[in-house]
Design a binder for these strands. Structure first.
Lengths: 188, 188
DNA sequence: CTTCTATTCTAAGCACGAGTAGAAACCGGC
DNA sequence: GCCGGTTTCTACTCGTGCTTAGAATAGAAG
């Protein structure tokens, strides 16, 4: 599964050859069928594991901050998500990069896990809103997804050479907290 | 090419069968070879067109605001990018969704176009910074990519039912301008 | 040393998708 | 109505990737 995750994260669902996976795992392709019924069931397992990974990791971070203020919790979740996506398991990376390109049947089951994960974020946003800290110009659902999107896209461009991971995390937090701009807000 | 863009946006590079494209275009697969030398060259053409589309569109928006203040320009660019990605050509959608999964040779050429597009955004961020409006906590490069990422990920979740396009645009602008939070900033 | 189970292998089958060859159809100009 | 070029078609080849069959290997237990 680790091998599959790696290949899947790199080449995507349709681009991942069973033989590539086998090579990474240092076995012959048919050996895979001892553990999985089919290519698809292997991939499904990997992708599921990936989102569950992210869910568990972020939940854990939040559990440690169960009585912190909503903003702190939200920013901690951002840090958690970014760490998993950029440094953590290639399982999560595989989920992120393939969520859009899975066949219908897998996608349906995978969607449940994603909804579960999404709930965590909705909850966070709700907490912030309940504390009266959410700006009213924002559509909460859109804001949530834009934030998750900013993080999910990060694997596409991030590398240690572009910017230190800590910088990315700090920037993401700052962006969410206070936006790009300084004093005057030049909205329209 | 339009058919190819549509299929490509939906199924990704490796998942796009020439026969699918032909079907959408209402021809038989070999007819494609009258216009393109190979599957890859077709896809390359589509993906190129896609990023050029986005570039041109955003450049045009900015040209109309050539003497506006930097913030207005940046926010207009955000609106432009989102409109192209969510409503506009499936060409751009195809580029966005496949940038990560193209074979090396295409990717190299495609990368140039992307760099060109990225320059526009760097320029915008620089303008903002030059006006002294950029918060210093931010790593500009990371901030730029996070913002682009938020928008590029939008096609993964957005649909007219989730939120009106105008809401998404407004939310994205507001997020970039002033972040999620209201009065107190609960950073750490 | 033998036997049983777990695991992996080699060899082959089968389907499918890219690409080619060459024939047909279409169409504007004569 | 015929001719030229353009465009698309049908029929085929060839490689590749998933999957199955059945044999081989590796240990553990007796």
């Amino acid at each position: 599964m680790e091998a599959a995750a790696e290949v899947l994260a790199r080449k995507g669902f349709a681009g991942s050859r069973l033989s590539d996976i086998a090579e990474v795992a240092e076995v012959q392709a048919p050996a895979i069928y001892y553990y999985f019924q089919s290519r698809e069931s292997l991939i499904e397992a990997v992708v599921m594991e990936g989102t569950r990974n992210a869910t568990i990791h972020v939940e854990q971070v939040l559990a440690e901050l169960s009585d912190a203020d909503p903003v702190t919790r939200l920013l901690a979740a951002i840090e958690g998500h970014l760490r998993v996506a950029l440094q953590g398991s290639s399982f999560t990376l595989a989920s992120i990069r393939n969520s859009g390109q899975l066949p219908e049947d897998i996608r349906a089951r995978q969607h449940n896990e994603e909804v579960k994960y999404g709930r965590i974020w909705r909850e966070l946003v709700n907490e912030v809103a309940a504390a009266g800290l959410l700006r009213e110009e924002l559509n909460p659902a859109a804001a949530q997804m834009l934030i998750i999107g900013a993080m999910n896209w990060a694997p596409e461009w991030w590398g240690p050479k572009v910017a230190p991971l800590e910088d990315v995390i700090a920037t993401a937090k700052a962006l969410v907290a206070g936006g790009l701009l300084n004093a005057e807000k030049g909205q329209r």
